[in-house]
Design a protein around this nucleic acid. Structure first.
Length: 432
RNA sequence: GAACCGGUAGUUUAGCCCGGUUAGAAUGGGCGGCUGUCACCCGCCAGGCCCGGGUUCAAAUCCCGGCCGGGGCGCCA
């Protein structure tokens, strides 16, 4: 007999099959029982009828018991799926012995704190599986798009000796007899790979931020979708790339996650070009259009500013994404390529009111790099392994990084970034 | 790191303002009934006021502290 996924049952009407999964729900009606079985691919109704022994078993089933069922695939009147399985064998592989800490069927609901405490049970809910299938699709599409354009996937160290940006706090680790840190970004290493001659590289991996923030959009460990590319003319090459990349990622989700989109009621943005604003324009929109004078002398966008800029672009262009380019050098890292005395070739990508990506052209000139470091109050001595690379032939280059959880969160419409992380790490949560 | 909101059965929630019945419900759990249910239905049972202190004749209810959770700020992406 064929062992199949629940989703494949549709084409197997009239066949005998074996399926397995978790008991999602049991309804016993006297001498007839309906069992909703769940596996990673979906839900299906099992019917127990005319079999006293199976009926006895069905009565004893608890939610989340793990079972194997064999039976005939027949047409179904059920609301769950067009086919159901008429059971002729039901084996309990393992019992769920405890009362469940939250409702997997979603009838009752639970607070986020409870859900994260019992994350494994929470993740049983089909809505959660759908979130992570969409996330997996986004990341897979990221890889496919870049590989097709000559990018090489790399793996950079997560244990590092130095801060990259000098800004965010670092987690310290004991590295034998010396101190080291968890990488807050693959920045330096992806640049070095490009400079070495890889030209175009990308990496999907964790980054660590020791900031004591506690908001719906920050994590202390998150997945960064990073890329870096050589021989660009300026940051517009990168925005062109990111525009096509994000369009492709969204399109992939649209095509390959139809059931998940429906289940979560996801709206996939449809766009060709992403509007590009310059930072001074963004500031003007905030202070003039929205009449918020406090932004007149802003050197960066805050959360509200990002939300309003997105709102503005949505109103003007009906696109939920926006690039903001030419941020002040004062608010950007030392390696940012200057545009003029004040501004740098550095941009953010905003999506539905949240910054989901930051990038820009990097400095490839050794002397300029040293100068910018000093201006930022950094000691070039601490970056000598990075700096020396720029003397061995460094092409013009740049890159950007997308936050996987932020992108997932905004695409799916989650209110809290923790929901877009399998086992989130935040200020007060290191387990499960 | 300082200020805001909250904590009542496993879960979600009513009661709290205005102190005083046996703390009510849904869902989940147990038992029984029911042959086409789909949030199945019906009956019965078990299960709870976060911890400590204070005020009071009396505290789930008012006050203080702690712990936990949520949300937001600064900072950060």
């Amino acid at each position: 007999m064929k062992k199949v996924f629940i989703k494949d049952l549709l084409g197997l009407k009239g066949r005998k099959v074996v399926i397995h999964g978790w008991i999602h729900k049991v309804r016993v009606l006297g001498k007839l029982a309906f069992i909703v079985l769940r596996d990673s691919s979906g839900l299906v109704q099992i019917v127990v009828k005319g079999r006293q022994d199976l009926l006895q078993k069905a009565r004893r089933l608890n939610m989340e018991d793990v079972v194997e069922v064999s039976g005939l695939v027949v047409e179904s009147e059920s609301k769950i799926s067009p086919v159901e399985v008429l059971a002729d064998e039901l084996t309990v592989l393992n019992r769920a012995t405890e009362v469940l800490p939250l409702d997997v069927t979603g009838a009752v609901g639970a607070e986020l704190g409870t859900r994260l405490r019992y994350r494994v049970v929470d993740l049983k809910r089909p809505e959660n599986l759908a979130v992570f299938k969409i996330q997996a699709e986004l990341i897979d599409a990221f890889r496919r798009y870049l590989r097709s354009r000559g990018f090489i996937e790399i793996y950079t160290p997560k244990i590092v000796a130095m801060s990259t940006e000098g800004g965010a706090e670092l987690f310290e680790v004991q590295y034998f007899e010396r101190k080291a840190y968890l990488a807050q970004s693959p920045q330096i290493y992806k640049q070095l790979a490009v400079i070495a001659g890889f030209e175009r590289v990308f990496e999907v991996g964790p980054v660590f931020r020791a900031e004591k923030h506690s908001t719906t959009r920050h994590l202390n460990e998150y997945v960064s979708l990073d890329l870096e590319m050589g021989f660009i003319s300026d940051e517009h090459d990168l925005m062109d790339l990111e525009e096509g990349l994000v369009r492709f990622m969204f399109k992939s989700v649209e095509e390959n996650c139809r059931r998940e989109i429906k289940l979560l009621n996801v709206t996939i943005p449809d766009f060709d070009k992403i509007p590009r604003l310059k930072f001074p324009e963004a500031k003007e929109i905030l202070s003039e259009y929205f009449n918020l004078r406090e932004y007149e002398h802003a050197e960066d966008l805050d959360q509200r500013g990002e939300e309003l800029i997105c709102q503005y672009v949505q109103e003007m262009h009906e696109i939920p994404l926006a690039f903001v380019d030419l941020f002040p050098l004062s608010s950007r890292p030392f390696y940012t390529m200057p545009y003029d005395e004040t501004y740098g070739r550095s941009f953010d990508l905003l999506f539905r009111g949240l910054e989901v990506s930051t990038g820009g052209q990097r400095i490839h000139n050794y002397d300029l790099l040293i100068r910018r470091m000093r201006e930022k109050g950094l000691n070039p001595e601490n970056f000598k392994y990075y700096l020396e690379a720029f003397r061995y032939g460094a092409p013009p280059h740049g890159g950007f990084a997308l936050g996987a959880e932020r992108l997932t969160m905004k695409l799916v419409g989650l209110k809290n970034i923790r929901e877009a992380s399998l086992f989130p790490r935040d200020r007060f949560r290191v387990e499960p």
